[in-house]
Design a protein around this nucleic acid. Structure first.
Lengths: 234, 234
DNA sequence: TCAAAAGTGTTCTGGGTACACCCATGG
DNA sequence: CCATGGGTGTACCCAGAACACTTTTGA
């Protein structure tokens, strides 16, 4: 267990991938299993890995995103580095990690990235080597390492991000969406209810959101108008 | 040059300490010299060091702050991790680093922290082991490693920080200050001129800034009122 | 005709910005 | 009496928040 490995066994990247489905903000988690013994751990972790010897951190994060979702060219933001010695103190976590990479691991610092991704988009194949699922933020189980904490800090980052670039909401909704869908999304993010009339006014003021002629069909009430994001209108 | 050292030779912390003096935002930089050969490098770097084997990142940053300024209990914010392999590719930087710590260094990832500190405060002794100076942001020379980039990202962070907690401005000004001094400080931070009348209105609306009865003395014009921060009024 | 959700306008408040003149003081 | 900077008030605009009723549709 000496280091003839491709890995640089001191640094990892973890990606908090945020998506939206069934009116719920969700995060992509993978099932933790022991590669060597096939032991099941029955818990989950964030997608991530040790970096390679001469790999740039940002590149490592990009490759993790691609590996788990197939997405390339998405916006990935480094938001915090987690490096307390205590984060690798749980023997279960250490055992798993050392088996997984066949390396002796001392302390391990991880650099956390976040990205907003479209769940179930064409490009979004979840690699079958891993058991990966989108889990609602409201139903998060206890995760490996300090991954619960990493996720909660990522959410705070998402809010900031959306405030200075609402365009990224486009990745959380289908191409066509109703005002209700958009409002529910905002309500999830800000964690409070929004006034319907004010919200319509807000939509009108957002020039990158455009009305379509199309409406809902076969709904047992007045049909809602569809909107779309117009990426040309910055 | 094997690792019998106290250091964990893969990770460092660097602190961007921001202060204010002579109507200028300044950053604390130390002179880079070779400890072994006494060679002068004639350039500067941020205060920082490798972390110890079992040291928490935040603790390492706190101890660097204390070492260079004597300040304890200040607010230190981790704002970004810099880890591209290229940042340790300059042979001059690598040679200095390896001499300084007597260790073989491969790639080195640094975690950057920032803090707002009061220049010349009682607690703010600059340790005489180092040649350390407050350098105006407008006159920054080329620094070691990627320290110029680290500083510029720190400044962006300062703006955000002040927006959601203007109280930290108290660390950039003397206990008593005039409206002019405060305005000049804002002008530095936002990099634009502010209207005098509007600024007075703004001060009145900030309940944690209180008027004193005291005024300037011996000035060749109408004496300005002094203000102070009132830490009790959140 | 009823249930269910869509859609619409006005008013108020607070913060930001633009703008020009008189006041106090020391030299 | 002059030069220097200190200090003040009004008007406009925009964004955000509160608030209630009519419209459309399928069942």
């Amino acid at each position: 267990m000496t280091n003839n490995s491709k890995y640089y066994p001191h640094l990892s990247v973890d990606c908090v991938l945020i998506g939206y489905e069934d009116d719920q903000l969700k995060v992509l988690l993978i099932e933790r299993a022991d590669v060597v013994s096939n032991e099941k751990y029955n818990d989950k972790k964030l997608p991530g890995r040790l970096i390679y010897m001469d790999e740039d951190l940002d590149e490592a994060a990009v490759s993790v995103l691609k590996e788990y979702t197939g997405i390339e060219n998405a916006y990935l933001k480094q938001f915090k580095c987690f490096g307390s010695p205590g984060r690798t103190s749980n023997p279960k976590d250490v055992r798993w990690l050392e088996n997984a990479v066949n390396l002796q691991i001392g302390r391990l610092v991880t650099v956390a990235y976040m990205s907003i991704v479209k769940i179930g988009a064409r490009s979004n194949r979840i690699d079958s080597d891993y058991k990966a699922d989108w889990i609602s933020l409201k139903e998060l189980p206890d995760l490996a390492f300090d991954h619960n904490q990493i996720i909660s800090e990522a959410i705070a980052e998402v809010k900031k991000l959306i405030e200075n670039d609402p365009m990224i909401l486009a990745d959380l909704l289908p191409a066509k969406f109703t005002a209700l869908q958009l409002r529910k999304l905002y309500e999830q993010i800000y964690n409070k209810d929004l006034d319907v009339r004010n919200f319509h006014k807000k939509i009108k003021s957002m020039k990158y959101i455009v009305e379509l002629d199309e409406r809902e069909e076969n709904v047992p009430h007045r049909a809602a108008r569809y909107y779309k994001f117009d990426k040309k209108k910055i």
